[in-house]
């Protein structure tokens, strides 16, 4: 389990026009606020703040996340597939790093 490992699950086979559910899991600590003397510690926290998904290069899904999303975020979203192709999911971390995963949708 290394940070930034992206795992994507899609149905094995899809039909044209079908709505498939893409399930993505990324290994990430999603740091929560630390408190000292009941005040949040002012520092840059490392968490994923944005997720983008494309299907054959076309943007299909986007999410804005906060620290109130669990560690190792799991996200499921729908994509209507019209032709076989690649789902690509990119996670943007607050440090500027990005993590990407890909999955093939076959017919």
């Amino acid at each position: 389990m290394s940070v930034g490992q992206v795992r994507i699950r899609v149905p094995e086979k899809a039909k044209a026009g079908e709505v498939v559910t893409v399930r993505v899991l990324v290994t990430h600590p999603m740091e929560t606020l630390q408190f000292k003397d009941n005040k949040p510690v002012m520092k840059q926290y490392n968490f994923i703040h944005r997720v983008e998904a494309t299907y054959n290069g076309r943007k299909v899904f986007e999410a804005e996340m906060t620290q109130a999303v669990s560690q190792n975020p799991l996200i499921a979203f729908p994509v209507k597939v019209t032709e076989p192709g690649t789902v690509k999911v990119t996670f943007h971390e607050t440090t500027g790093k990005t993590y990407t995963g890909e999955a093939q949708i076959r017919f």
Partner: peptide, 11 residues
């Protein structure tokens, strides 16, 4: 393009 509005996550 999503076809249906259905999402899931852990919060």
């Amino acid at each position: 393009d999503a076809g249906k509005a259905s999402i899931a996550t852990n919060i």
